[in-house]
Structure formats: C-alpha cells, structure tokens
C-alpha cells in the first residue's frame, strides 16, 4: 500500500491495486500444484442446467473406470440428483451443495478434494454449478475446462455467453440426436465457438447415445482416452 502526497491537508489518495480475484487465483494455482504432485488430471465441466453435464460425466466414468481410477465432484445449489446419477456409472462421487452460490470456486474444490479418497486417483471430474455466466470468472485449478452446450437450449447459447469461452479448452455441442426436431444446427454452434476462440477443441456429441464422446475425450487429451 502506497500513500501519496496529500492533495489537501486532509485528503489522501491511497493506491491499492488489489486484485479481487487474486485470492481465488492463488488457491486455484495451489490446487493445480496439488493435482500435479499426485498425477491427477482434473477437468472443470461447465454448462447450463439441462445441457447434459451429468450424462456426459456418466459417459466419461463408464469409459475410463476399467483403466483409470476416477472420482467426481458434483456441484449443485441444493440437490444430490447429480451425485446419485453419477454414482450409477461408478467411481467415487462427492456432492457439493453451494446453497445460493452460483458457481464453484477454488476454495470449495480445495475442501472437497480433501474429503475424497486420493489414493491412486488418476482423473477428477468436476461438474460445476449449472449456469454459463458466474463460473467463468472462478478458476478451480483444473487442467481442462470443458463447456457443454446442447441444441435443446436453442441456437444462441454460445454467442450469448462469450465470456465463459475465453478460458475454455474444449466445447461439446450436445444432444445432436435432437438437432433435427429442435431445428438447431450443431455445426453453427461449433462455428460460433470457433469464431470466438479459434484454438478451442470442439466436438459434436450425444451424451445420451455416446456418439462423439470418445472423440471428445481424445481431443481433450484425457489420460486413458
């Protein structure tokens, strides 16, 4: 903190330059170091309620569980629906209820991880709270950030949420099996994502049928994919 020369006898300008996101970013970096030290590959999964995050996590778990030890953290305001569903696919699952908080942050993940069985853990899937605005600002320390959008949410999900894609590594355009009835072009959603960030990995998938999921996992560089 720097106190400058008073502009009058009584008034002072105090230079702070304090980053309000620094505390979270610092903890996120700590989480990353912790994951790296244990050889854990962590993925932060974002998407609106109903975009298909949980179904996709189930697909990831089913595909990986014979080769890798997988655990999941399910973030949700109030229910255990997500954790209960993921549990049917296998692996350890921890439900985190955030109450009124619209996003997970690095400290929540930090606490959640400490209550998981980390012995030999290879992959940690972190399903964020269902919305595409707030979680964008709060990095968790994961190695990949995946955003899930589905054709059932309409044609504008990507162009209306540009900020969340800035930090994303991959985008899954989901529910392609319903694209015809929804009259939404999945290729258009993919194009929107690439128009914002040409370096994104993109895949057209159906988390329900499993189509495109293997390709998505390869593109994301998930170990064991």
């Amino acid at each position: 903190m720097k106190i400058s020369i008073p502009s009058t006898n009584e008034t002072f300008d105090i230079e702070l330059s304090e980053n309000m996101l620094a505390a979270n970013d610092k903890l996120a970096a700590e989480n990353r170091r912790f994951f790296d030290s244990r050889g854990i590959f962590a993925i932060d999964i974002l998407g609106s309620v109903g975009s298909g995050k949980t179904t996709l996590v189930q697909q990831f778990v089913r595909r990986l569980k014979d080769r890798k030890k997988v655990a999941s953290i399910a973030g949700d305001l109030a229910t255990t629906i997500d954790a209960d569903r993921i549990r049917t696919a296998g692996g350890e699952v921890l439900q985190v209820n955030t109450g009124s908080l619209c996003h997970l942050d690095a400290s929540i993940v930090n606490r959640a991880v400490s209550s998981l069985d980390l012995d030999g853990l290879d992959i940690l899937l972190i399903e964020n709270v269902g919305n595409l605005i707030c979680p964008g600002e709060f990095r968790l320390g994961a190695h990949r950030r995946l955003v899930v959008v589905s054709v059932t949410e309409g044609p504008y999900m990507i162009v209306k949420h540009p900020a969340v894609f800035l930090d994303a590594d991959a985008v899954a355009v989901n529910k392609t099996d319903l694209a015809g009835v929804m009259e939404v072009d999945p290729e258009r959603l993919k194009k929107d994502a690439l128009a914002l960030k040409p370096g994104l990995k993109t895949a057209l998938i159906s988390a329900k049928t499993g189509e495109g999921v293997d390709e998505l996992m390869r593109l994301m560089g998930i170990p064991g994919a």
Partner: peptide
C-alpha cells in the same frame, strides 16, 4: 473479440489483460 493473433492469425494466444477486477485506489479524508 476473436481470440486469435492480430499479426500472424495464430490461435495459440494468451489473454494478458481484460479480465481484471481490481480496487485501484481510494481517496480518504483524515
């Protein structure tokens, strides 16, 4: 914005500013 290089058109770019949430300064009376 399009996250690509304004010079070479490459897509491997990092954001160096534009995501801040900073308390820059305050003016106080003693």
């Amino acid at each position: 914005p399009v996250l690509e290089c304004p010079s070479c058109g490459g897509s491997d770019v990092e954001i160096i500013s534009g995501r801040e949430a900073v308390v820059k300064s305050i003016r106080v009376v003693k």
